[in-house]
Amino acid sequence: MKEIIYKIRSYSESVEVLDQLQAGYRIILDIENVERTEAQRVIDFLCGGIYIIKGQIQQINSFTYLCLPVGDINIDDDQ
């Protein structure tokens, strides 16, 4: 499975992240450079889109998320 690392700088870039998830890529998302309120909009948008495509999202740390497309390995709290 291919992975892409995104360092998001604005909400408008979140559509591209979702497009890549739909194409089957794993996404490592870094939102450190996004204003807090805009970062929350990005995560809310992605959570909704990931739900629709039956993918998964897991917070790695305060600014990093792992987004998985449908059919990828389940995220487990023990990992």
Rank of each mutant, 00 (worst) to 15 (best):
I75P: 05
L18F: 09
L18M: 07
I75C: 08
I8R: 03
F45D: 08
G24F: 12
D77Q: 05
G55T: 04
L66S: 04
E32F: 13
K54D: 00
T37W: 09
K2T: 11
V17S: 14
G48E: 01
Q79N: 06
Y6S: 04
Q58H: 04
R9N: 13
I43L: 14
E32D: 07
I75Y: 15
N33C: 09
A39T: 10
Q79W: 06
G71F: 14
I60N: 00
K2L: 08
D30Y: 06
E3W: 02
I50S: 03
Q56D: 01
G49E: 05
S12L: 08
I31Q: 12
L66C: 04
S12T: 15
G49S: 13
C47R: 14
V15L: 08
V42Q: 09
V15H: 11
Q56C: 02
P69A: 04
E38Q: 15
R36H: 10
V70Y: 15
E13N: 13
L21T: 03
A23E: 07
I43P: 06
Q56Y: 02
N61S: 07
N33F: 11
E16H: 11
I27E: 12
N33M: 09
G49D: 07
I28F: 14
D76E: 10
C67I: 00
E13K: 11
S62T: 03
V34N: 05
I31T: 13
V42S: 07
Y25F: 15
P69S: 07
E3C: 06
K2C: 06
R41V: 11
E13W: 11
M1L: 08
Q40G: 09
Q22W: 12
R41L: 12
N33T: 03
I73D: 13
D78T: 13
I4H: 02
Q79T: 08
T64S: 06
K54G: 00
A23M: 12
D44S: 13
I43Y: 02
R36N: 07
L21A: 05
Y11C: 04
K7P: 02
D78V: 14
A39E: 11
Q58W: 04
R36A: 15
I50V: 04
S12M: 13
Q59A: 04
G49P: 09
G24C: 14
C47K: 09
S10M: 04
E38C: 14
I52K: 07
K54I: 00
E35K: 15
I60K: 01
D44T: 09
T64Y: 05
N61D: 04
S10L: 06
I43K: 05
S62W: 01
L29Q: 09
Q59D: 00
A23G: 04
V15W: 06
V70K: 09
